[in-house]
Design a protein around this nucleic acid. Structure first.
Lengths: 159, 159
DNA sequence: AGCAAGTCTCTCGCTCGGCGAGATAATATG
DNA sequence: CATATTATCTCGCCGAGCGAGAGACTTGCT
């Protein structure tokens, strides 16, 4: 029903985008399996790296909310990551109820060794674009994110 | 370390693309939760819909290989989907060892009611692009997929 | 100060998704 | 027809994540 229109470009692009996200997910899953990480552990590491990059101090509570895990699950994730040496837990000296989370150098290096080449290639690809092409691509990505955000808001509240 | 270069555009685009895939995953997860589907169940449904679209008859064996599940897990997924009325199992009359899988109208309608609006908006977005912009976006998506595929091949064999 | 209430993290017991091994049924091969 | 092969399902186990609640620390009120 949604598919019988003559404007093939739109649907084709939708399909390409979906295929790309699937491929990226597969790649991430491979990386996780290879390093004895569960998908959730990888998501946690990424969230922690993002937090570190933005300068915000990460805590188990924040992480759990981001991953939609309850406290028990969050503890388990951190136990696994800490056991593997990817994360360190330290008490916050200002509020000693809190635990501050820190991603180790080892984890950063691991991620870079795996995703670095792909990122480098992507950067090279983007740098090879003309200014007009770059603008088109970035505009598309930005618009898509806005679109997805709108649809994400429309649904959840009804739960 | 990978981030101190002056070519901000490349990394910014990488970041945008990653953020978009994360958002899309979240959206899919919401949909799954709302319909009492596990992430794997959703992946299975999508795989089955893709198979149906491409005309290939789907079977538990094929599905399991695609999802990287073993036969026991595949049976469990199908049991759940069948119980929810999203999938039908029928014996293949030509090879009666095989089971053919068929996605029900109900499941298709469910997916369309949830993702239809987003797809429609995306199609509208794409249709609003100039030919040059469209070419840039499609070229980028295609190149990215090729890139990801190359990196996906480079890794796995070493397991 | 000191107690109550609130916040952050962790522990315990349970449910259920996925795996390994093997059983069962149907088809292909000599 | 006997044997090997293929496709699917059943059984017992492991482990991720949840709900409930305990313990450690802080903040606000009196």
């Amino acid at each position: 029903m949604t598919a019988e229109l003559p404007d093939r470009h739109g649907l084709q692009t939708v399909h390409q985008l979906r295929a790309l996200t699937v491929d990226l997910e597969v790649l991430a899953a491979e990386f996780a399996r290879r390093n004895r990480l569960h998908p959730t552990d990888l998501r946690a590491l990424i969230a922690l790296l993002d937090a570190a990059r933005s300068g915000a101090p990460a805590t188990p509570g924040l992480l759990g909310r981001e991953l939609r895990l309850n406290s028990a699950g969050t503890t388990a994730v951190l136990d696994r990551l800490e056991r593997l040496g990817h994360v360190r837990r330290t008490r916050d000296p200002h509020d000693r109820r809190r635990v501050l989370l820190e991603v180790t150098e080892q984890a950063v290096a691991l991620g870079e060794s795996h995703f670095g080449p792909l990122i480098a290639d992507t950067v090279a690809l983007v740098d090879g674009l003309s200014p007009a092409e770059l603008a088109a691509v970035q505009g598309f990505l930005t618009s898509m994110r806005a679109l997805v955000a709108r649809h994400g808001e429309a649904g959840p509240p009804s739960e």
